[in-house]
Design a protein around this nucleic acid. Structure first.
Lengths: 343, 343
DNA sequence: GAAGCGCTCGAAAGCGCTTTCAATACAGTA
DNA sequence: TACTGTATTGAAAGCGCTTTCGAGCGCTTC
């Protein structure tokens, strides 16, 4: 294990018989530089021969231009975020950038701490996916972190929140609204919503959209019919049991995360309640498991692939000073977990 | 958006009235340094007041000690890798390290390219998860990359391959072997294996383990009964159709990735073949979807959480020169997709 | 009281690169 | 041929930090 030092730019320069500056210009292909042919070729050849690899730290330090993008998610193990991460990683690599992923496990304190840690890495941009605590007070630590980061020249891209940097609207509200219409079209009038922590923007947006959709159909969503739990499968199962025992059972339950809906379906089935025969269940996200369960889950498909790609585009957009905002729409995927209500 | 420069260490030093060196020592808490009390306190106070944040690039450059760990996976969108990534990210952050994730989408060329890109970032360690093309020839580009990286002082941790750096055995062989025994115990004698590309180590190991398990029970696995497809749900569906039409249908099918098994189950059900009534299906991995489908999937649970944690431990282990190897075992999760063969 | 030890602390030398700045080369024009 | 304008090149100054090296200090030890 000879800890032989890595090849440096100066080694390449000497080997090619040019100055350090020239070698740098050739290899970092700075703008319009083409070299007089001769020198350029020699540098390229030497670099290849010696197996030169730039040191990104040195590059970042000298050029104050980092080549990493930071992605902050709630939980990378969650399919929803994994899908976004996949798209971000793929898009970033197209631009020769690396992605640093941080998983906050839905803890706002953590999130702020991580953001601080991340800033130390001086990433070109921070993409905040699925962050979005609805703390609109002036003292929101996350917003403060973000603003500070922007202040030092960083780019911020947020998904589902719009109080900092570029923002991407992932279609939470619109999607939920469409879903509400679809459920009413199926004949449902009695609803329950099972969702996550009220402090998450995502939760609020989906709920708001669903409620608005119902209102447009002349249906009021009883606040008591909105159940806030965790955004997990287990939570769905627990709530299913509660709903099963309720005196007045809804005909359609909207689990505002696919995993929750999956838990609901499993829960009802365990209790011998037929889905969709006796009760319809819809989810949100169209994560792979949605099509895998039986009955397959009616849900709202979010274009996560494009969202991730777009996030990288915005992250790398040349003029960060002008805030941009891009909206996507969710599309309702009618599958087997919903049907007309029992007669 | 005033692009005000970030606070530097020298700003802190001046504000505290100490030298740059002292400030550095206090803030990077280098070993046994405690300061004479006085100086230390002042530096800490100044840093807090000015909101100092170290520049990791400068740190890495000067100290030649990076604070990122690189994680290479096949596909971060895949639950298996997402689970590993979650554990790695969590464990890394405990050590104040950031994780750079690269997704190679199962392309060996890509993988080698990414490894090169990664090396430019000079991560403290590279964790290669689910890499493992079985190219044992001298010209394996990935092994070459890894060895080169080790040569320059980097640490390598591999999951499921053992030709470089520290290695973690995730239990592919042992797990598959146990599963084979469990299936034979259930009464099965006729098997088929549906698996991924033969060039993946994971595929080979699981197959080898399964075959060995059967042999130990006196059963030979017909090479014709091993079907190599993609490690996807769709592939499972396709193969289910093929198996359904075969003249001699096995009583138990082992899908060596959970997703494949999920596809198999869905495929058989679509064709009206009862699982497990007419045919048993088992998977490997125990990814969340395994418990979500109906019938729930018999599979082998890999301790991915611990694997990820251990990978980080090894990555950060003080003496990289001595190669270490840690083995985990998979445990068979008998669920509803398997039963005794039809009489 | 001199020598020795174990600290803290400051000056300064880099880490490997990008990027001015000034110098030189070359082409094009008169 | 001389003269300007443009492209290419090299020297050198950092980017923000860690880390030797050595000076200085307060002790104990003989």
């Amino acid at each position: 294990m000879s800890r032989r030092a890595a090849v440096r730019l100066i080694d390449v320069a000497e080997h090619a018989g040019v100055s350090l500056a020239t070698a740098s210009r050739v290899l970092s292909s700075a703008g319009a530089y083409r070299g007089r042919g001769e020198a350029r070729e020699r540098v390229l050849a030497s670099a290849a021969e010696l197996g030169y690899e730039p040191n990104l730290h040195a590059r970042a330090l000298a050029g104050s231009q980092s080549s990493t993008i930071a992605l902050v998610v709630h939980d990378i193990r969650d399919a929803y975020f994994a899908l976004i991460a996949g798209a971000v990683v793929a898009a970033a690599e197209q631009h020769g950038m690396l992605v640093t992923i941080v998983s906050t496990y839905r803890d706002p304190q953590q999130e702020a701490r991580y953001l601080a840690l991340l800033r130390a890495q001086r990433p070109r941009a921070i993409i905040l996916a699925g962050s979005g605590f609805t703390n609109r007070s002036a003292a929101d630590p996350i917003r403060e972190e973000l603003q500070r980061y922007e202040g030092t020249g960083g780019v911020v891209v947020t998904l589902g929140r719009q109080d900092a940097g570029h923002s991407i609207i992932v279609g939470n509200q619109e999607g939920a609204r469409s879903l509400a219409h679809a459920m009413v079209d199926l004949g449902h009038r009695e609803f329950a919503v099972v969702t996550g922590p009220a402090k998450l923007m995502t939760v609020r947006d989906r709920l708001k959209g669903f409620r608005r959709g119902l209102e447009e159909c002349g249906i009021d969503l009883d606040p008591a019919a909105v159940i806030h739990g965790a955004a997990t499968r287990e939570s769905g199962g627990t709530v299913a049991a509660q709903l099963a025992e309720a005196k007045h059972r809804p005909t359609c339950v909207f689990g505002s995360f696919d995993v929750v809906a999956v838990g609901l379906v499993a829960g009802f089935q365990r209790l011998g309640i037929a889905v969709p025969g006796e009760i319809s269940v819809a989810g949100f996200g169209d994560v792979p498991v949605a099509s895998d369960i039986t009955p397959s889950l009616t849900t709202v498909r979010l274009p996560l692939e494009q969202v991730g790609q777009q996030a990288v585009e915005l992250a790398l957009s040349p003029d960060p000073a002008v805030r941009r905002s891009v909206a996507f729409e969710g599309v309702v995927m009618l599958r087997d977990s919903t049907a007309a209500p029992p007669a």
